[in-house]
Design a protein around this nucleic acid. Sequence first.
DNA 1: GATGAATGAGACTTCATTCAT
DNA 2: CATGAATGAAGTCTCATTCAT
Lengths: 223, 223, 223, 223
Amino acid sequence: MVVAIVRIKATDASVAFTMQQTRARDRHRRILDAALRVFSRRGYRDASVDDIAGESRTSKGGVYFHFPGKEAIFLALLERTATRLLEKIEESIAFHDDPIAKADAALLTVLRTFARHRALARVFMLEALGAGRDFHQRMAEIRNEFTAVIQRHLAQAVQQGVIEPIDTEIAGRVWFGALNEVIINWVLSGRPERLEDAYAALRPLLMRSVGVAVQPHRPAEEL
Amino acid sequence: MVVAIVRIKATDASVAFTMQQTRARDRHRRILDAALRVFSRRGYRDASVDDIAGESRTSKGGVYFHFPGKEAIFLALLERTATRLLEKIEESIAFHDDPIAKADAALLTVLRTFARHRALARVFMLEALGAGRDFHQRMAEIRNEFTAVIQRHLAQAVQQGVIEPIDTEIAGRVWFGALNEVIINWVLSGRPERLEDAYAALRPLLMRSVGVAVQPHRPAEEL
Amino acid sequence: MVVAIVRIKATDASVAFTMQQTRARDRHRRILDAALRVFSRRGYRDASVDDIAGESRTSKGGVYFHFPGKEAIFLALLERTATRLLEKIEESIAFHDDPIAKADAALLTVLRTFARHRALARVFMLEALGAGRDFHQRMAEIRNEFTAVIQRHLAQAVQQGVIEPIDTEIAGRVWFGALNEVIINWVLSGRPERLEDAYAALRPLLMRSVGVAVQPHRPAEEL
Amino acid sequence: MVVAIVRIKATDASVAFTMQQTRARDRHRRILDAALRVFSRRGYRDASVDDIAGESRTSKGGVYFHFPGKEAIFLALLERTATRLLEKIEESIAFHDDPIAKADAALLTVLRTFARHRALARVFMLEALGAGRDFHQRMAEIRNEFTAVIQRHLAQAVQQGVIEPIDTEIAGRVWFGALNEVIINWVLSGRPERLEDAYAALRPLLMRSVGVAVQPHRPAEEL
DNA sequence: GATGAATGAGACTTCATTCAT
DNA sequence: CATGAATGAAGTCTCATTCAT
């Protein structure tokens, strides 16, 4: 039996592995962030993987190490955005008990999030449509996820007797469509300057549509 | 250089000229029709000028004789669709005096038109937004034109005292957004089977949103 | 009824069509010729479509207009070579009545053809093996075509009683393999300097293998 | 820098060293074995170092530790195959005294070896020639080594008066070429099912080609 | 006016090789 | 010694657009 004294570098295998993993995850995120900027700036069609590589301070090959291709990057971006936004929405909803307050919180969260990330809004709402037929399917699913959230809470409101019985599915779709339109209009025209400001005018319409009586012009700040 | 003597059936130079014009306009239309099919089938991005040429029984050169390029074809298609649809809407509106009836007529016209032309719906509502930054300006304008029509008639309704005073601009946008969402959902999922059937559920929500009292479940056929 | 005098350009549609076709066929051939040179010089693997385009005084796109891809170019080259060589062989065979003379003529034709076109020999015998698994199948077929020619004539010789009954299939394969080896060796080593010279030594072995008595060292020139 | 005390099971430093060597040699062999499978499956061109690394349960870096590059792996594989095969041939030859028996033994050894290792046959006979110009030099040498073995023993047979004087060099090449062709045909077509069975038909032709009288249809089993 | 061969910029992608850990 | 993330050169292919015929 030999007893040997061995020097182990601080960068022991397991540590090195973790560091590599950390750096890799970092790069992964950097690529997605860069992709968001590039897609937003040039559109899906005109964005090149080279652009993304440059913007993320990586090489083209590096990008392809982390993602199978341009489409996959876009899809990953879409998924990340949708997941995060849905999480934010659920968080903001959880704060409130009153179904109406929940609805307000959810809608405002969406508007405020996109307001702070116009590039995200552009990519999520516009470029996603031009990324090819394959994305339409996924986009439809994402639309449905959002619509479902609205519908679920409207149904709850009905159950609690806060609003009259309505077709919550179509109501969810109407709310989503309205919100969608306001955001797209803001992305395309830049108006209103602050996207959240649209809510003051949007709210009464949505509320009334599901039978909630409202006074016009209740300012968004009070919510 | 060969000199040939040819008999032309036309009895008049100007007529011949007119025939040429007619043929040119024919081809122009054929190209647009083909473009619609191709864009609907493959999306703007993946549609090639070759596809359009083939589908319109012309050559690539022929397409380029009639249009400066791929973008111009798409834009012309957009314009034609928008113009025709707006015309149809105005026609259907002119039939009625009651502002509410006008609104119903307008919305149903849109749904019925797209119901008959799903390819048109796909291109106009999905591809147009995702076709790239060059189209965003024009798309914003087109969306505004439609919103403006709704808004104008809502404003009239307010003026006539049929509905309470509301922010008609945002109302127009909400109506447009809701309609848009219903149509897109139909294009992507095929539901409801008959797009017009969506109106029965959609109507009460829209009406209530602008303060018109409605009984739920009023079937679309009665409108 | 109008009678018009029209000038028809010498480049009338049908003529232009023919000229275009002619030029296209020309370009097609030029690309194949260039491909032969490039494949021979750099090997299939290292030959780029750019190289072929440059060598054929065309653009990359031009090459892709005439061929679906690099593999197709190579395949076309292979087919053309095989077809031409088989034709030459059949021609040379048709000159003679004596089965033995036919065999001599065929073998010498192959050697002489490749002797004049070493690049062709290199591409046909070596590069064809490195062009990917898909080509192996086609190469096997081509090998069989050549083997079949030999076999057919050996069988005829047996039938005419010129040689004793033998397994002509394996004999065809032996002859083909021997010839193949001599040519590959010449391509790889450059020996013998004149490929045809190999025949003087090769002939007695092949002849004896099928039971034809020969005097050694019958010079090729006498054939 | 961390200092650790480790117990090593080995009782002797030199033994540990030897173990390292053994492990290295093991990995070296594993890589070559994996390379054979990969090259056989995908061809030299389409085989990637990643494939080889994966197949040999190593990492890409590991492969590059043992070999300078992809070409070197292929070359090493070629050398190993050639060396082993030549050794086997010499062994089998050494068993016999009669030159004809020696020849039979040699040819059968080749057929039997490849029959058991079709992947080896594919790589050695097909891929090696098509792997690119860099290998041609070495392949020419390897082919010559095999041809030389045949030639040497044929020359001996001539010297011993067993066969008439012939050009043994070309005879060696014919034998090699014939064998080569039979094996390639088997690799590509799978016929005959048992490669060794080809010898029964091949043998009389080869023997006659060098002036050895044979009765047709002497079955391989008697050899 | 029509045709389709030709152009060429630019896209995506692969992969042998390197090297920090 | 091993690992695998990263590099970047090079390749194949697409397609909007042009233009001689």
